[in-house]
Simulated scan of single mutants.
Amino acid sequence: MDLFRSVQAVADTDDGGIIDWDSVAAAAKAGTPKGDLDLSAEEQAGYRNDVRDARDRLRSVGEVEFDLPETIEIQHRHHWIDANIETFRRVVEPLESTPTMLPTVSRTINTGTMALTLGFLGRNVMGQYDPLLLADRGDHALYFVLPNIRRVAGQLDVAYPRFRRWIAFHEVAHAAEFGAAPWLPEYLETRMQGSVTALSEGSIETEGFQELMAAMTAVEGYAELLMDRAFDGEYADLREKLDARRQSGGPFRKLMSRLLGLGLKRDQYERGAAFFEAVADARGLPAANAVWESPENLPTTEEIDEPTRWLGRVDP
């Protein structure tokens, strides 16, 4: 980690806009070791087999048809930062027109904050299914951040091949739900842009934000349900060790986790999984797939906590 280069990149922000994205990229990567990307032939075959097996098992168990993304990449941390910076830029684009006091100072602070965020995530994200929201192209992508997967497997004292396979199943489960719901990326994008635009105008778009949170809870919960039914072996120990790792992090890690809402993401896993488990127990796993037939079938916030209300409304 080159702290001096990271600080220097933020200090060198140019004029115009609320964030200097070139400086964000430079600072995030200067403060983040990219990690080793050397892969043995055995590892390459392992990733291919894990992704293929996950696709086949999820199709069979979930009774859902989907294709893998055209783009599947094994990345180091700098690759991940580069792959995500455009998405972050597009998300905050509506804020560019918001007037600020001391624009140069605000720009430097915003640039530093975004670089810190991307650097932190780049050091911790292990896998990502990317529907490329807010992008001009419509394809999807699947990323595995190799240095992070290796590091966390060692920290948790679990077998690397098993841990790698678990990550692959989880991310391919997201590909399954987005494959089953081709309307979902536009649905999420519209509500995300609406929330940010409202914020730029000094208001909060409550309905759109609630719909976004409910949809994301469904996304996380369905993936958890498929994982539970499709993964070839118990994985409760992996989840417990990851939860313990999150809770035992240092002050900086805990602060960043709180600021980035990572605790909220865990809550989405749990609430969403409980909803889909209840639906599957009541009507069978194929009934849970009805959520992805149309936007109208998405559960509301209230229905997530009371699945019988959703079953009564949708009747899958």
Rank of each mutant, 00 (worst) to 15 (best):
M1P: 05
D2A: 11
V7N: 07
V7Q: 13
V7I: 09
Q8R: 12
I18T: 05
A28V: 08
A28L: 07
K34P: 02
K34Y: 02
S40E: 04
E43W: 02
V51L: 10
R52E: 15
R59P: 01
R59L: 14
S60T: 13
V61P: 05
V64I: 15
L68G: 12
Q75K: 08
R77Y: 03
W80I: 01
N84D: 07
E86L: 14
M101G: 12
T108N: 10
L118W: 02
L132F: 08
L133N: 07
L133W: 01
V158E: 10
Y160F: 14
F169P: 00
A176E: 04
A176G: 00
A176Q: 03
A181M: 06
M192K: 04
V196T: 07
S200E: 02
G202E: 05
E224A: 15
D228S: 15
A230H: 06
A236V: 12
R239L: 15
A244R: 08
S257Q: 15
R258K: 15
L262F: 13
K265H: 09
Y269F: 14
R271C: 04
A278K: 03
A280Y: 01
D281N: 08
P286M: 13
A287D: 01
S294T: 14
T300R: 09
T300C: 09
T300S: 15
V314T: 10
